Each structure stands twice: as structure tokens, then as C-alpha cells.
Amino acid sequence: MQEQQANPGVEIPALHESLDDVRRGLGEWTVMVARDPSSGRLVGAVRGRVDSRGEWDIGRIMVAPDLQGRGLGRALLALVEDLAPAGVTTYVLFTGERSTDNQRMYKKAGFRLRADRRAPAGAVVMTKSRRRRG
């Protein structure tokens, strides 16, 4: 919701998915959710998949508005990065060009802006190279 409010008119695909789109996507994406252990409340989610370029496409990073700023988004981002298959060398995500808080978090996590024709008008692409373990 905040992404759409900060970027009115921007056509980031995840912001316009129907429930049926999300259901179909469960077979295409690795989806993780965070729940409050005491209540079971859904408090965050993230998803990732290998795209046509062989990059790990990260999407729908969501944190309940009342819990933002507590590190849950960063934890979900780190989690989804760890779930990328072994051959992936680059993480990629889209966000609104006016979503300064999101961009700040991604930059702190090592993501950088990349010029990319796939980005819808008003959106930016951010990428990060995967560190090799060993």
C-alpha cells in the first residue's frame, strides 16, 4: 500500500496482482511469510524466483505497517537471498523511484541502482552481486 501511495500511477506488476495471480504465483515463486508467534498474525512476507536472465528476482517484500522500522524487512530480504539456488550470481528487485525508504534499506543491504529497460516508468531496478561462500 505504501509503495503505491509513494508512487501513484506506477505500474509495478506486484502492486496490481489479483488474488488469482498470487495463487498462480505460488507455483512459480519461493514464498516465505513471517508470523507473530504469540498470535499467528501475518506480519511480513517475501518471495523470490529465478528470472529469464538467471537472476534471483526478489519481490513483494511486505511488513505490517505497525512493525516497520524494526528490522523485519531486512531479515526477510536476507532470508530470501539465502534461498536463491546455488548457480545464481545476482539478486534483482524493482521498487518505485519515489520509495526512498525502500531504496535506503536496499542500499544498506548492498543493492545498487541499475539502468534497465524492464523497469516500468516510475520504477527503478536494484541489483546486488551474490557473495561467494567459502
Rank of each mutant, 00 (worst) to 15 (best):
M1I: 09
M1N: 13
Q5N: 14
A6N: 12
N7S: 05
P8E: 00
G9V: 01
I12L: 13
A14K: 01
L15M: 10
E17M: 12
L19E: 14
D20I: 06
V22N: 08
R23Q: 14
G25I: 01
G25A: 07
G27E: 15
W29E: 07
T30Q: 13
V31N: 11
A34E: 00
D36L: 01
P37R: 13
S38H: 12
S39R: 03
A45I: 04
V50C: 08
D51I: 09
S52D: 15
I58Y: 05
G59W: 00
R60H: 07
R60P: 03
P65Y: 06
D66H: 13
R70E: 14
G71Y: 09
A75E: 11
L76E: 01
L77E: 01
L77S: 04
E81V: 03
A84M: 04
A84T: 07
P85R: 09
P85M: 08
A86L: 11
T90C: 04
Y91D: 00
T95H: 03
R98N: 15
S99F: 04
D101I: 12
M105P: 04
M105Q: 11
G110Q: 10
G110L: 10
R114F: 11
A115C: 06
R117K: 11
R118Y: 06
P120L: 01
A121T: 13
V125R: 08
M126C: 06
R130L: 03
